[in-house]
């Protein structure tokens, strides 16, 4: 509760580098929207990836109230948020982006995340839901093609790809391009088309694999509750409304830009879409489902979310 005329400046640590389209489309947009709607009373000061805090530390800094706002991937908050594994995307669960949208907003998964984050004094708002897709140097036409691949991966997907039979290894982002170029790995995932294009991966890997490895709320905006509660009530509501609206606008816009980017690299860089053959897809789905249950063991909350997810997928006719 402050006087109505007071102005606030928030430090915002992004996990996107400045050249990433999300930096402009998500953060600069939010900055503009909040500035307009609060009539200049809430200013966001944006910092590019790593400027103040590394991505893995941003949640802690926001939780302590050292930063007022930040962006992260759920996987960076794994130690605090037991739902983070499910939020960062179980492999081969959703088949369309709208399904994940409905899971978050219609079935209440977003609220579950928000409740867990609130225990750490963080207001959680998923920025958008989008697919993670692989790019590879040679097409997958059968199961042997898949298992002979060396793929750069990380986190849950690395485990999944390994258990499914490919050789997945972790290589830091800064060495990814050279690794693909020289053939240390034959494939990688870095977001989907936009991510791969931003890392120039299509220069050295010409096949874009579909369907997605997962579809999930991989980008999240987090706000310090301490900072939020310092705002006058009308401004608190403006922030929350803007974040709710952001989810729908950004998910939709991101999908549009995905297709745009893919069309562009197909036309200009000779990229081909490699749709996985049915038998490969089926085997991958089986391997994936065997892994899901592990995420449910993280906590009571995670089990509840996983059961909800399974019920939902059954309802959609996928299980």
């Amino acid at each position: 509760p402050a006087t109505a005329q007071e102005t606030f400046t928030w430090k915002v640590q992004s996990h996107w580098p400045g050249a990433s389209s999300s930096y402009t489309d998500s953060l600069v947009r939010l900055q503009r929207v909040l500035d307009e709607r609060t009539e200049g009373r809430l200013k966001l000061k944006l910092y590019e990836a790593g400027a103040l805090f590394k991505a893995q530390e941003t949640f802690n800094a926001v939780s302590r109230g050292i930063l007022e706002m930040g962006t992260i991937s759920p996987s960076y908050a794994q130690d605090k948020i037991s739902l983070a594994g499910i939020a960062s995307g179980l492999p081969f669960a959703f088949r369309n982006v709208w399904e994940a949208e409905y899971f978050h907003q219609g079935m209440g998964f977003e609220q579950m995340l928000r409740d867990e984050a609130a225990e750490h004094n963080v207001y959680w708002a998923t920025d958008k839901v989008y697919p993670t897709e692989m790019v590879i140097k040679k097409p997958i036409n059968n199961w042997d093609d898949f298992t002979s691949l060396k793929i750069r991966s990380s986190g849950v997907l690395q485990k999944f790809l390994t258990e499914a039979g490919a050789a997945a290894s972790y290589i830091p982002g800064s060495e990814l391009y050279s690794a693909l170029d020289s053939g240390i790995v034959d494939g990688a995932h870095w977001g989907a088309a936009q991510g791969a294009a931003s890392m120039a991966l299509y220069e050295v890997a010409k096949y874009h694999v579909q369907p997605a490895l997962n579809i999930a709320g991989t980008d999240v905006i987090i706000v310090s509750m301490k900072a939020l509660n310092k705002l006058p009530e009308d401004m608190q509501q403006i922030v929350k409304d803007a974040l709710d609206e952001q989810f729908w606008i950004r998910t939709n816009e991101y999908l549009y830009k995905e297709r745009l980017t893919l069309a562009k690299v197909i036309a200009e860089q000779g990229v081909q879409v490699n749709v996985l053959p049915d038998d490969v897809q089926n085997k991958l789905v089986k391997a994936a489902q065997a892994m899901w249950d592990e995420e449910g063991e993280r906590s009571e909350n995670a089990k509840k979310a996983l059961d909800m997810l399974k019920g939902y997928l059954a309802e959609l006719g996928y299980l």
């Binding site: 400045g18 050249a19 982002g173 800064s174 391009y177 170029d181 931003s198 890392m199 120039a200 220069e203």
Partner: peptide, 10 residues
């Protein structure tokens, strides 16, 4: 530099 500015690493 490439990551920050969006130019090609190669």
């Amino acid at each position: 530099y490439a990551l920050i500015t969006g130019v090609s690493v190669g």
